[in-house]
């Protein structure tokens, strides 16, 4: 037994070393970004570069405020992320519930139609998607940004899986108590799938907050840009100020970092589960 333990300890050492190196490869750039947001421009473009700050300054945050309307971008990101998510939670869970537990004519056809939209990657239909929003007069509006992203087949699928495992006795009891269908859904069923709902909320907020392509297509006006496309356009300009870009990047990461800190479990469950339960 002790011989075996010794062998597994010596075998484990290089493995743990490898994993540690990989973890550092993920962490160091993020820590470096955090520190650099507080370095003066001169230190950022010095050679040899510094990792730890020689000087600490808040100046980059002032600069980014002067150069772009970043508070507007933050507001737009908040509206996009939370607005889309609020609508998505209601609409996708209603649909998922119906496909899981209700009988109606055309159910299979409608569900297949929903699944079929999963097969078409967004990048493939981005041109006509833009045109639909444009023709509906929603170009450069919050509605145009949010509404097309609300119904998501994968979320409907995920909610359907969650609703379908609830025992039927619960539903029957509620029906005997005189609850109507909406009452059964909202008071009896929704509380049963709370953790799946939280997964959906967390993933949807993170997904829209970090979404780059869609805002680039339909929210191009300076007053409509989100953090993701606003900052991308800012660093795309030739006279880039690195410190200001880092400050902007930090502002963009922080809310999602907090969400991750408190809801890590739901991030993982949502991302892994939505794929594997299929």
């Amino acid at each position: 037994m002790s011989r075996l333990n010794k062998r597994s300890i010596w075998g484990a050492l290089p493995i743990q070393l490898l994993l540690t190196v990989l973890a550092l490869l993920v962490l160091i750039p993020l820590v470096w970004l955090f520190l650099s947001a507080f370095k003066p421009e001169k230190e950022i473009i010095s050679w040899p570069p510094t990792f730890l700050n020689r000087t600490f300054t808040w100046a980059n945050f002032d600069t980014v405020h002067k150069r772009i309307d970043i508070s507007r971008y933050v507001l737009n990101s908040v509206i996009y992320a939370f607005g889309t998510t609020a609508m998505a939670v209601v609409i996708n869970s209603l649909a998922g519930y119906a496909y899981a537990r209700m009988k109606f004519v055309g159910k299979n056809a409608l569900f297949l139609l929903t699944l079929a939209t999963m097969m078409v990657p967004f990048q493939v239909i981005m041109v006509p998607s833009f045109l639909v929003v444009f023709k509906l007069g929603m170009y450069n509006t919050y509605w145009g940004l949010m509404i097309p992203r609300v119904a998501v087949a994968a979320s409907i699928f995920m909610m359907r899986a969650a609703f379908s495992v609830i025992p039927v006795e619960l539903e029957d009891a509620a029906r005997i108590d005189g609850l109507n269908e909406l009452g059964i859904f909202s008071r009896i069923m929704v509380p049963q799938v709370k953790s799946t709902l939280v997964c959906m909320v967390v993933l949807s907020i993170n997904g829209s907050w970090n979404d780059l392509l869609w805002p680039m297509l339909v929210a191009t006006d300076t007053s409509m840009r989100t953090l993701a496309n606003g900052l991308a356009l800012f660093v795309g300009q030739y006279t880039i100020q690195y410190g200001a870009a880092f400050a902007g990047a930090l502002i963009s990461i922080l809310p999602m970092f907090l969400l991750y800190l408190f809801g890590q479990r739901y991030f993982v469950e949502g991302m892994v589960g939505s794929g594997l339960k299929a």
């Binding site: 990989l22 973890a23 993920v26 962490l27 750039p29 993020l30 470096w32 970004l33 650099s36 950022i44 993170n206 907050w209 970090n210 979404d211 780059l212 953090l227 993701a228 496309n229 900052l231 991308a232 660093v235 690195y242 870009a245 880092f246 902007g248 990047a249 963009s252 990461i253 999602m256 970092f257 969400l259 991750y260 890590q264 991030f267 993982v268 991302m271």
Partner: peptide, 19 residues
């Protein structure tokens, strides 16, 4: 830790790694 890049937008990844 390995999961952490999920919270970064492509924009953030671009700003960070380009520098």
């Amino acid at each position: 830790v390995f999961f952490l890049p999920v919270i970064c937008s492509a924009t953030v990844i671009g700003i960070m790694w380009r520098m």
